[in-house]
Computed example of a mutant assay.
Amino acid sequence: MTLMARWRRTLALVTAAAALAVSAQAQEAPVMQARQASPSTWFVEGLSALGSPQNQNFISNAGFVVTPAGVVVIDALGSPALARRLLEQIRRVTDKPVTHVIVTHYHADHIYGLQAFQAAGARIIAHQAAREYLHSDTAALRLEASRKELAPWVDAQTRLVTADEWLDGPKELVVGGVTLQIRPVGPSHTPEDLVVYLPAEKVLFAGDLVFRGRIPFVGQADSRRWILALEQLLAYDAQVIVPGHGPLSQQARADMQLTRDYLVYLRKVMGEAAKNMEPWEGAYQAADWSAFEHLPLFRVANRMNAYNTYLLMEREGQ
């Protein structure tokens, strides 16, 4: 199959998935309510859906840690309007200023709100591996498309925001005497994945390495290293996990296992098909998806995930 034919197939899958998701969207703006995860940590939970004007692109989670000297936010949500709503939620909890925003990865649903936090004076921290994407044609085209698909919530004033501090390794961030451990775990879901751990309260902000109770979005991820990264996360003595998508988790191993099992199965069935040079469609139809087809977003994401994994396994086998 030629590169152009693969691109057309991927575009067709994306278009079909978007149509399924949009048809299921509610017409009212989604409710945002900060919920407490531990004495010092809070989070807001996005919808289990693809972004649309109806949900304002509120499809991912964000968290924040309240310290005596200020607030540290983890991820900025998918539009400036959502970020401003998150700031309002923070104001209901504390009058301390937002001092930092830590970006777990540079996907649109986690970063389009950054400019609102930058305007509020927050210092933005991210992994330096995001620089390549941030200055790429892919990022520019993604934003251009979002300005049309997610208007008016993402518009001509919405822009990509660079970090004030680019990390190339682990960092201990101490604010008001509270220590946050920032750890690189990529490349896995993205090249720039970061997780944030609050050891005093055993809370882990896992970004999109963990999709709780739903099918993950695999995209161009390195699924082999994603599986290894999940093993790293299990080494933390976390009692609470704030995932990138889905409800709060207090069963770390069980909830990570779902994402891991799905990735392992994708690699197994698509890897065998690629090795045997079987056509992708036939391999997809022959696979047994019964362990996952009941999960939210299966119909939206699974075909794309399987196709991208098939291409990945082809490359790995070369």
Rank of each mutant, 00 (worst) to 15 (best):
L3M: 15
R8W: 15
T10Y: 15
L11C: 13
A24N: 07
A24M: 06
E28S: 12
P30K: 09
M32P: 02
A34C: 06
Q36M: 05
E45R: 08
Q54P: 06
Q54A: 13
F64S: 02
P68T: 04
G70T: 03
L77W: 01
G78Y: 02
R84S: 11
I90P: 00
V93C: 07
V93D: 07
T94E: 09
T94W: 07
D95H: 12
D95L: 09
D95F: 06
D95T: 14
P97R: 12
T99A: 04
I102V: 14
H105Y: 09
D109H: 13
H110M: 08
I111K: 05
Y112A: 06
G113N: 05
Q115I: 09
A116Y: 03
A120M: 01
A120T: 01
A120H: 02
R123N: 10
H127A: 02
Q128W: 07
R131M: 12
H135C: 08
A139M: 06
A139I: 04
A140I: 05
R142A: 15
L143T: 06
L143V: 08
K148C: 10
A151R: 08
P152F: 07
A156Q: 13
R159F: 08
D164W: 10
V174C: 07
V175R: 01
I182Q: 02
R183D: 13
P187K: 01
S188A: 15
T190D: 03
V196C: 01
L198Q: 08
P199V: 13
E201Y: 06
E201M: 08
K202S: 12
F205N: 01
G207E: 00
F211Y: 15
F211K: 00
G213R: 12
A221E: 01
S223L: 14
W226L: 00
W226H: 03
L228W: 11
A229T: 02
Q232M: 12
A235W: 04
I241Q: 09
V242K: 04
P247H: 03
P247T: 06
L248M: 09
S249K: 07
M256C: 15
R260W: 03
L263C: 09
V264C: 07
L266N: 03
E272M: 10
K275W: 12
K275C: 11
E278F: 10
E278I: 15
E281C: 11
Q285A: 15
S290Q: 11
F292M: 06
E293M: 09
N302E: 14
A306L: 07
A306M: 07
T309D: 09
Y310D: 09
R315W: 14
